[in-house]
Design a protein around this nucleic acid. Structure first.
Length: 508
RNA sequence: GGCCCCAUCGUCUAGCCUGGCCUAGGACAUCAGCUUUUCAAGCUGAGUACAUGGGUUCGAAUCCCAUUGGGGCCGCCA
């Protein structure tokens, strides 16, 4: 337990230039959320969109929707965005809206004045300076250093330029950038809550850039200003930020700010063990939502990537995860995102759903295929959905799995044969089924009654000879639920039609 | 190339901090069996891991060092 009175955890959400909420970003958000809840702190959501490429409102919308879908809720953040958004979220959980909004605005794109003041402060105190090198020069310098096997850093000769002189130079070269005058010979040490002490030498940092101009801060500068202004006590982010930390600490010191606690999360990796990225396939929360994963499953799965409560269990509710979470138990090494295990976990969650919940969840996927119209027969759908519940791994499978309830199955006649059967055997088998079913009348018959009739007719032997052709006639599939349950749902008359169609496929 | 981080089954991990109960536990995946018309689900079982080398110690997966391997960062992106 922290003794600090302030416990504001920050999540940095940078809208990606592709506009999607990356799995890794969502995981970072989740751990911030969990830590804030575990410490009874305040979870602050900040949109890091200083770069114009990332400041599209659509991108922010994706982030907000993605986090809400996952039920990762913040206490402070861009409140107007949540209120304005007409809730397209499929979630039914009662989202509580942020109650405090005392450190806003929470979009970096709206904080220009604040940054400007601090940039000026650094310039005035001589801790920052204008750099007049062109991008081309910098690029060449980097390549040379790399070729010479020297550390890649920029020690800028403009760092000693007088302010007055710099003002004059600015007249002719207005597109100069602002750099930090990195102090030489310093060792910057910080304690990482997950990794322990980490240190860097300032001499290897160079005079790093902090702003494009007096109004436009760059990442490292913007975040430390925001952290201070928003009273952030804990910065929990991905391990890829570990090397930014010494730069940020130097800036914090130069401005006289308070250093937050740092915790660097292990990276989420692709199957090749490199940082999870587009080339590994689906990387955004939205893609997983569309593919029919449940938010609870994704939440559970992501939480267990790089953390676990130390027991043998795998399935935890959100509340259980919150209750057990601690940064001490966070893993240091990266974790491969194993979709196979996610599939299993998603199946587990699907199996735990009630019929009503599951229909609601499946509806969009059935509508998408044109199998049903809005407000179709719920009773019928419920039976179908329940039938597939033990088999489904993803909601999106529902259409594929149950299409035969909505349209004529497409299959070739040979599929009707069980083991060594000939077409003649199949015909006999189907006619037998037809006869048995016909004797049952036309209404709805319970599956166990159908089963009884069939098993009495054939005994314990040769079930496959009778049941396989029947099942294929009904479904057109190699794999499906059993024929009796299917007939109970579709009705005897529909089943008979299926059999007739199958008979029609056989060569005469 | 420089700096930094990391290292238990194929994958996620328990155990490591506070050495002995570890002939290393669980889960996913794989394979086999049971059940079964098929596919799932369920049940039973199998194989698979402490990167290597040195220390420290009566004793090391656990502590220390080195090596190797992997990853991250090195933007006028975040």
């Amino acid at each position: 337990m922290s003794t600090s009175s302030i416990n504001q955890v920050r999540v940095r959400i940078a809208p990606s230039p592709t506009g999607a909420l990356h799995i890794g970003t969502a995981r970072a958000a989740l751990f911030n959320y969990l830590y804030a809840r575990a410490q009874d702190g305040v979870f602050v959501l900040r949109i890091e969109d200083t770069d114009v490429e990332r400041s599209d409102p659509k991108f922010e919308k994706n982030i907000i929707e993605g986090l809400r879908w996952l039920d990762i809720l913040w206490d402070e953040g861009p409140i107007d965005a949540m209120l304005n958004e007409n809730s397209t979220s499929s979630q039914t959980t009662n989202h509580k809206l942020p109650t405090t909004n005392s450190h806003g605005p929470y979009r970096q794109s709206e904080r220009g004045a604040t940054y400007r003041a601090y940039i000026q402060k650094l310039l005035d105190s001589g801790r920052a300076f204008y750099c007049f090198h062109s991008e081309k020069e910098l690029l060449e310098e980097r390549d040379n250093l790399m070729a010479m096997k020297r550390p890649v850093l920029h020690l800028c000769e403009f760092r000693t330029m007088e302010a007055a002189e710099a003002q004059i130079a600015k007249e002719t070269k207005p597109d100069c950038i602002i750099r930090f005058k990195t102090p030489p010979g310093r060792v910057i040490q910080f304690r990482d809550l997950i990794r322990g002490d980490v240190c860097f030498e300032s001499d290897l940092l160079g005079d790093f850039s902090i702003a494009k101009n007096n109004d436009t801060p760059l990442y490292n500068f913007a975040v430390i200003v925001d952290d201070e202004e928003m009273a952030i006590s804990h910065v929990i982010r991905g391990e890829d930020h570990i090397s930014n930390t010494p730069k940020q600490i130097l800036l914090i010191e130069a401005l006289g700010f308070k250093t937050p606690q740092y915790a660097h999360l292990p990276l989420i990796l692709g199957p090749d063990r490199s940082k999870l990225s587009k080339r590994h396939g689906a990387t955004s929360v939205d893609e997983y939502r569309k593919a029919g994963y449940l938010p609870e499953a994704l939440f559970n799965f992501i939480a267990l990537l790089g953390w676990n409560p130390g027991s043998d269990r795998e399935i935890y509710s959100r509340d259980e995860i919150v209750a057990h979470f601690s940064l001490e138990r966070v893993q240091k090494s990266g974790a491969v995102f194993d979709v196979g295990k996610l599939d299993w976990m998603n199946g587990e969650y699907i199996r735990r759903k009630s019929a009503t919940e599951l229909i609601e969840l499946c509806l969009p996927f059935l509508e998408e295929r044109g199998f049903i119209k809005k407000g179709g027969d719920r009773n019928y759908l419920e039976k179908i959905v329940l039938l597939e519940q033990p088999r489904m791994k993803k909601l999106s499978e529902i259409g594929e799995r149950t299409d035969f309830f909505f349209r004529e199955p497409k299959y070739d006649a040979p599929l009707l044969r069980w083991k060594g059967m000939t077409d003649n055997d199949v015909r006999e088998s189907l006619q037998k089924s037809k006869q048995l079913l016909g004797a049952l009348g036309m209404g709805v018959v319970e599956s166990k009654n159908i089963e009884k009739i069939f098993f009495e007719a054939i005994g314990e032997r040769d079930k496959g000879t009778l049941l396989w052709p029947l099942r294929v006639a009904l479904t057109g599939k190699k794999a499906s639920p059993g024929p009796f349950e299917i007939i109970e749902i579709m009705g005897i008359d529909a089943a008979l039609k299926c059999i007739d169609r199958a008979l029609g496929k056989l060569t005469t």
